[in-house]
Nucleic acid binder design. Structure first.
Lengths: 214, 214
DNA sequence: GTCTATAGCTTGATAGAC
DNA sequence: GTCTATCAAGCTATAGAC
């Protein structure tokens, strides 16, 4: 039966997720991954077509689930406003809050995936194509909602605003420890409550000022 | 004389900068770099101690020059306000405008370095240490100026605001093409004028709203 | 300063026994 | 499904002739 098979496959995916997040795709060998997963090297090629395929499966496992609950969060916000339009802050909250909730619930399960996303988003070679493939349908739905909340905003301002949001969001979830150094310990990269209090406020202000100018 | 030596060394640095930016440190071999530089592999180890040392020299060549002109831009803004404090937007402009000016003047000389910074900033393993080493002295000066422009702001809000700025800034300069896809061609990753019109506006609004709440 | 040659190791991937 | 064994290629780095 595929019981042990599934267990091994998941152990490989977990080990790969952690190591890809820490060292990047090229920075890790299949041998290192399989050693961390406590399984033989050849099993990687039984369960996956190639190293690249393993990487793809690591991503897809999380992306589908995440996009679904984020879409659901947006729908709930919209249903709460059947007659008027939701505020910018509420829409951005629906985009970012589910990510933060998962991180708060099980940090070690999600932090490596978020770190991977941060690296992909900032990769000049494949960043554009991969991020679009994973997220553009979801993001287009959010842009649509924001367009209704900011009826005087032109599309160029709207897309650039989302782009700035994307950079701030993915760096925040990369948990690099930079803010710990810079602030001399006043702030911590892993302080989810601190982020939760601030990120949507900062970003909503950016959207509103940029879009009211247009 | 060290004339040809310098020329070869610079060709190696140029080739390394381009390839590291495109594929990451681990994604490129010394052989590939030296082939692009049209020089023998062994010359890499004559001019540099190791692959890692080559990477460090690629970074330092740009960082020192850049930090100096950005500090100068801040000083100029402060001197223009001998009695009152500069605005948040002016301070952020001094931080980002020099980068944009260089990119506008000679895109191919600077774009690869900016792409490298984006990847380093978002690297969970070394991002914190490297970014702090390269930029914390400069950034601390800017934080100081922002603290004067936002006298009621507490430090935690200030550092988190800078962190959001950092993510938006480095992703913007990574030129991944994502915004081209998402916007269906309405926006372009390499449209410096569009960025110049918007980024400081968006970010200043974030600083001001987050810091007036505290 | 620049070359040839090579050491010593790791890589992604596969064939075939069980 | 999981193992042993192995391949061909690529890797960083160095020694030594010129």
């Amino acid at each position: 039966m595929p019981k042990q098979k599934q267990a091994t496959r998941d152990r490989i995916l977990d080990a790969a997720e952690t190591l890809f997040a820490q060292k990047g795709f090229e920075g890790v060998s299949v041998r290192q991954i399989m050693s961390a997963a406590d399984a033989d090297v050849s099993l990687a090629y039984y369960h996956f077509k190639s190293k690249r395929d393993l990487f793809d499966q690591v991503m897809l496992r999380r992306v589908e689930f995440l996009n679904e609950i984020r879409l659901q969060a947006l729908t709930e916000v919209e249903e709460r406003h059947s007659d008027d339009a939701p505020t910018v802050e509420e829409i951005i909250g629906a985009f970012t809050q589910p990510l933060m909730q998962l991180l708060a619930d099980d940090h070690d399960k999600w932090s490596h995936y978020y770190q991977l996303i941060a690296q992909i988003n900032n990769s000049p070679e494949q960043g554009g194509a991969l991020m679009s493939r994973y997220f553009d349908p979801l993001v287009s739905r959010f842009i649509e909602a924001l367009r209704k909340a900011l009826p005087d905003c032109n599309d160029e301002d709207l897309y650039w605003s989302y782009h700035f949001l994307s950079g701030a969001l993915t760096l925040t979830f990369a948990e690099t420890g930079r803010i710990d150094n810079l602030s001399g310990g006043v702030c911590s990269s892993t302080d989810i409550a601190a982020i939760n209090d601030r990120m949507h406020v900062f970003l909503a202000a950016g959207f509103e000022r940029l879009c009211q100018k247009s």
